[in-house]
């Protein structure tokens, strides 16, 4: 059978795809909480910074962001006398994380704003500071609210990693393109690749489902 020969190189690509997904999801989560909470901040500078970040990265295309960081940023670095040439892996993780983080920030903001006003009043009556209220009372309650959209974003992020093959990173999409050039057996290769992405997406969605149940466990307890 021909197709068995493709398994090894494609699995190597899968591994790179998984690594990229994990790193960029972690970066994206940090940015999502930072910018999402920043948008709710009363400090005008932090708020403006967060809003600008969210709007720019949600308003432009991921591929534009990726190419900008890969092709344009080093030139900007030359202009201002800094070495801003990064390894393609760094550029890929940065672009994916920045992009998904901007979408995640809106999820965080929306979920925090959906916490009932009465919870903020109870916190005030107990004399919590604004920051404590946000991080100790509002955010933990908002977390389960965020999980379903976060699950969708994680799968979106996995799919988006395919674009880093365009800056010659050896992920699954890149391996597939290499094999196709070599063998011209497009039907077999791309069918396999589609199912591999599908499989990874299902596993990721299942993991996010477990996480969702974990952070929302106080919700499911009933008398």
């Amino acid at each position: 059978m021909e197709w068995t020969r493709y398994i090894d190189p494609l699995l190597q690509g899968c591994w790179v795809t998984i690594e990229l997904t994990v790193y960029s999801t972690i970066l994206g989560t940090l940015l999502a909480f930072g910018a999402g909470m920043g948008k709710l901040s009363h400090n005008p500078l932090i708020k403006a910074l967060s809003v600008t970040y969210i709007e720019v990265f949600r308003g432009t295309s991921l591929l534009v962001q990726l190419f900008w960081l890969y092709f344009a940023l080093p030139l900007l670095g030359e202009l201002i006398g800094l070495d801003l040439r990064f390894h393609p892996v760094t550029v890929g993780v940065l672009a994916l994380g920045l992009n998904i983080g901007a979408y995640g920030a809106e999820v965080v903001r929306g979920a925090v704003q959906s916490v009932p006003r009465t919870q903020y009043e109870a916190a005030k009556a107990l004399n919590f500071t604004r920051t404590q209220t946000l991080w100790r009372i509002a955010l933990p309650q908002a977390l389960p609210e965020m999980m379903p959209p976060f699950g969708n974003l994680a799968v979106q992020n996995l799919k988006d990693t395919a674009l880093v093959s365009l800056i010659s990173l050896g992920d699954l999409a890149f391996r597939a393109e290499q094999l196709r050039n070599l063998t011209q057996d497009s039907t077999t290769i791309y069918t396999m690749v589609l199912f591999m992405y599908f499989g990874m997406a299902l596993v990721l969605a299942a993991l996010m489902g477990l996480l969702e149940r974990h952070v929302g466990r106080w919700r499911h307890r009933r008398r």
Binding site: A173, Y197, A201
Partner: peptide, 14 residues
């Protein structure tokens, strides 16, 4: 659950 890029390649080459 599958990337646009791969779907595009599939249509383009297959």
């Amino acid at each position: 659950d599958t990337p646009l890029l791969i779907q595009l390649f599939f249509l383009y080459y297959v």
